[in-house]
Structure formats: structure tokens, C-alpha cells
């Protein structure tokens, strides 16, 4: 399990003045290890280290949870921690579209999904 002794669990993530609850990270949000995360030495916490290595190619939060074998809620907290420390980037589709329509209600996004499925 992913809560080694002494690890802080932040209920809220504050980044550059933006605060959002950890639970708001979408399960499909893509996590990728930043260059800072790549060049940092091995993380002393095995689960964090596994996430950092796994996300050299972007993976959803759900994939992180499944592959590292931890409940979704725990994966979210670890990902949020790593994001705050600049070790991963979280491309949250909802946040990216904040202020405009969300991607699932954006016609050009849906068109691309439809065409992509047809091409499979």
C-alpha cells in the first residue's frame, strides 16, 4: 500500500495559486514524467518511483492505479504530490477546457473521436 510512514497526504493541491481537490483529477487525466522527474534520482518511495518510471510515456491516472496496484484514491494523492513537486505533469482534460466547453461536448473533439474509431 502506498502510504509509507511519515508521508504527507495533502487534502488540497496548491499550485501557483490554483487550488483543487485531489479528487478532481479525472481518472482519464494523462500523467507524464517531466524532465525534472526524469533527471531526479530514484525516489526513496517505491510507489512514487514506479509512477515516475511508468509515466515516461503518458498514462491515465486509472492506468497508474492499475499498474502500480493501488486504489484509485491513493494513486490520485501520489500523482497530485508528484505534480506539486514538478516531477510529473497532469494533463487533465477538464481543466484544459475550463472556460470553454468540455472536450466531451466539443463537436470538433467528437468528430475526431468518431473518425479515429472508424479508422481502427
Amino acid at each position: 500500500m502506498a502510504t509509507p510512514d511519515g508521508r504527507r497526504v495533502r487534502p488540497y493541491l496548491a499550485t501557483r495559486g490554483r487550488t483543487r481537490p485531489v479528487q478532481d483529477i479525472a481518472i482519464e487525466a494523462l500523467v507524464s514524467t517531466t524532465s525534472t522527474g526524469r533527471s531526479a534520482g530514484a525516489d526513496p518511495e517505491p510507489e512514487r518511483e514506479r509512477i515516475l518510471r511508468l509515466c515516461h510515456s503518458p498514462r491515465s491516472v486509472a492506468e497508474v492505479a492499475a499498474i502500480v496496484s493501488m486504489p484509485l484514491g491513493v494513486a490520485r494523492v501520489l500523482v497530485a504530490d508528484l505534480e506539486t513537486e514538478g516531477l510529473v505533469r497532469v494533463a487533465d482534460p477538464h481543466a484544459a477546457y475550463a472556460g470553454s466547453s468540455e472536450p466531451a461536448r466539443n463537436l470538433s473533439v467528437l468528430e475526431r473521436v468518431r473518425d479515429g474509431l472508424r479508422r481502427l
Binding site: 499550485t15 507524464s32 517531466t34 525534472t36 505533469r89
Partner: peptide, 23 residues
């Protein structure tokens, strides 16, 4: 998140992040 990237990831921009959607 995308908009803080240039510093933390050394010049990777938000528009290089893939969009993920779900059904």
C-alpha cells in the same frame, strides 16, 4: 498541468499534451 510546464519540464508546452476522453 499544462500552463506551468515550461518551467518544470524544460520547455514542454501544454499543446503537446494529448487529450484524453472516455466512454
Amino acid at each position: 498541468m499544462g500552463f506551468v510546464d515550461s518551467e518544470v519540464s524544460g520547455g514542454t508546452h501544454a499543446d503537446q499534451d494529448a487529450l484524453s476522453v472516455k466512454i
